[in-house]
Design a protein around this nucleic acid. Structure first.
Lengths: 218, 218, 218, 218
DNA sequence: GATGAATGAGCTTTCATTCAT
DNA sequence: TATGAATGAAAGCTCATTCAT
């Protein structure tokens, strides 16, 4: 009802309450993320989430309409975080291939390695649910793809090497997202040999950069 | 998977029984595939599968240990089918880049377009389940990846252009599988504009071929 | 699917199964009736019904869509039984006032006294629920009212004393049903002095018969 | 029920507070009545009542012990209102049959038509709950019945036509209440043809008056 | 007095699985 | 082999009620 702590003139207790409320929400989301990744969405009961978050089931349902809402929210948050990370890496760039590379490397270094559980949620647990969850997942992927597409276009423009077929930028972006997804998942969870994810990530980026260049006029 | 009527020397009735048995099994698997894709694995009950297959629940459990076994079997069958398709396309090839391209195109033309439901099962419904299902999925992907890796190596050898770093073949293969997966899923289910999947498929293949060439010595 | 035991030529086991199935249903309905009346519909849990019927909850839900379906079915069954009882009493009659009286008395003697729990269900427990239950209750009351209306008309015709305003027959019927309902409930459950229900029933019938006569031409 | 501003000698602020308090209470009761009738008692949550009354749940529980207390209070208030209405109509009378008729007509004209929601609460929503609610309902009906019984006796006395069996007055009263209840409910909620409730009410009254006369000595 | 976040017992319902026939 | 009635654990979710602020 009242938006957040307006500078001054607000009862201190109200401000604290709001902070606590936001904190509760986070606690619940964190608990849910951990459990969903550990045991799987369907194997995690609402009661377990409540216990892990040290609140009652009622509280979970006070903050989230239902269990699926937690998954949706998690999907959205993680998608957003990923975009912000990769995007910021791009924005630091000068539109060169190097910047493009750097953003890719960053995905592995700054996202996959420190937050493997987020990778799992996005690429495994959020898959195959109701229309609403699928919608959130689609949105996250689509926005990420769009970011990549724009980066390609920006780079092409900046390098003065226009795309041979500009409409192909989208497919390239989709492909790139696919590469990141599968490489991350494969080397993070499916290969237990101590493959160096940074090394394979680098190769993957080299691979995709070469693919992009193929579409740039000389 | 294949056990049916071995050559001769078998009581005809036994042969027929085996055929019927195999047929029942197929009917059940087909019903399960349809329902899993339509409503999702968890939203599909064993009774529904039985009804759709026009048998009783008991019969479903006679042929399959449990519901998950159906999903595993479906995952295996479809993975196998996909491998056979792509592999045969390769084997028809002479180890040239052209053959490599052709196999990629074939994935879109001969697998995705005629069997979108199999794409859905493999890339959506089989994701995020128990260890057993995940194992089957992993195996399918791994084998496919291995096929691609070998194809790259064969091609490199055949063209007399060895890989700059032979151990990179695997990452390339993983990346390529990722591309196929996401491009297919994206344009089959997420883009409702009438994007020509064959066109985008072609671009994707062009993209990945260029990526591979980057790793071949001149 | 197959209707009941067709004379001959049916596997005996199938016949027995059908009998058992019908029996189970009855057992569950009886348990539900007892509990609904004893503790109230909302205070009765599905598990309690199952326990009382000595089956599992699953079985209750195998036979009835949900808890409310039990209430609906009970309402229908009891309404039907009541109609049959009162109706048969009428049909034995010659269309005289006496027959009309007799049917009324029969309601108290043959329905209320032996089956007070059915009175309770119809006049208390079935009241104030979802549209579906209300529909069933309305239907039961409406049919009973219609029976009474027709009896009035038949009697009038038979006695050659037409109604002064034939369209009033319906209000009379509704009023009569109202009398039976409240008198029964009042003296069965609200008056704990040992009021003789047969005596008050007789007075009520005398009262309503006089009311009806008021609408008959001399 | 009535406690407000006693004559004089009271701090004005206290008076105001009492008025406000009574007002809050009414607001809550009105909201509850509307919702109970619209969605049913069990389908209405305390939060919904609070929202509709534009107060917090806490406030609802400050004024009323629990949700059932609201239902009880509503039952009592409406019973009381009904009695007052019908009773006042009687008291205006001279103990003639005419006055008796008039009171009956008044039930339909001045209670049912302007307040159908109160009819619903009394005859549907208050039915089938805990002992406490049932007690309130019983009390309301019993008092109303007693009023009617006394009116019959008064009339009989006044007309100098004593009852043939004075103890029958009660059954008649119960019957009459039953008539009013069912006729009102039937024509208000179950018949959607535009039946004129005043017309059927008149017939019902004619019917019951004739019934009463049957018990008066000539 | 008023608030509304927090509680948690308890309910209905589902559904994978079994097994007597 | 095939059936389908029966099971019962387990889950999601609601909601009356409380109480610190």
């Amino acid at each position: 009802m009242q938006e957040s702590s307006q500078t001054t003139l607000e009862k201190p207790s109200a401000t604290r309450r709001k902070r606590e409320k936001a904190h509760r929400e986070r606690t619940i989301l964190d608990a849910a993320l951990t459990l969903f990744v550990e045991k799987g969405f369907h194997q995690t009961s609402a009661n377990e989430i409540a216990n892990a978050a040290e609140v009652s089931v009622g509280t979970v349902y006070f903050y989230f309409k239902n269990k699926e809402a937690l998954l949706i929210r998690l999907t959205q948050d993680i998608s957003y975080e990923l975009r912000k990370l990769v995007g910021s890496e791009f924005s630091k760039s000068d539109g060169s291939l190097k910047g493009f590379r750097r953003a890719g490397i960053s995905f592995f270094k700054d996202f996959c390695i420190p937050h493997p559980e987020k990778v799992t949620l996005l690429f495994r647990e959020a898959v195959g649910h109701s229309t609403e969850v699928e919608e959130a997942r689609k949105k996250g992927f689509t926005q990420l793809t769009e970011d990549v597409r724009k980066a390609i276009l920006f780079m092409a423009d900046n390098m003065n090497r226009p795309l041979t077929t500009p409409e192909s930028a989208e497919v390239l972006a989709v492909s790139i997202v696919g590469i990141y997804e599968r490489v991350a998942y494969n080397y993070l969870f499916w290969k237990d040999d101590g493959a160096d994810i940074l090394k394979v990530g680098d190769d993957a980026v080299t691979f995709l950069v070469a693919g992009v260049e193929r579409f740039l006029k000389p």
